[in-house]
């Protein structure tokens, strides 16, 4: 099971800040996003940033069972 966290506009548009995803692992972030879109059709298109267990990751990064994956819009702090 993967714990998925959504932030900012992604959480607002989907009405979801956190969800558990039952998915076959290992899987790339790209594969996880495809699966996520089936569950959350309102997930906007666009360039996202990712983190696996709080470390920045890319679309090609591999997700394992038990990981926490953050799907994030571009940062806008400061």
């Amino acid at each position: 099971m993967i714990r998925v966290l959504l932030f900012g506009v992604l959480a607002t548009k989907t009405g979801t800040k956190e969800m558990s995803l039952e998915i076959e692992t290992p899987v790339t972030i790209e594969g996880l996003i495809e699966e996520l879109r089936k569950r959350l059709p309102s997930l906007p298109e666009g360039e996202f940033l990712f983190a696996i267990n709080e470390e920045q990751a890319s679309k090609e990064s591999i997700v394992h069972d038990g990981d926490t994956v953050a799907v994030m819009p571009p940062f806008s702090g400061g």
Binding site: G8, V9, M72, P73, F75, S76, G77, G78
Partner: peptide, 11 residues
């Protein structure tokens, strides 16, 4: 660098 690397979002 803070603007590009720190996960913060502004509304």
């Amino acid at each position: 660098t803070l603007k590009n690397t720190v996960p913060l979002w502004k509304k």
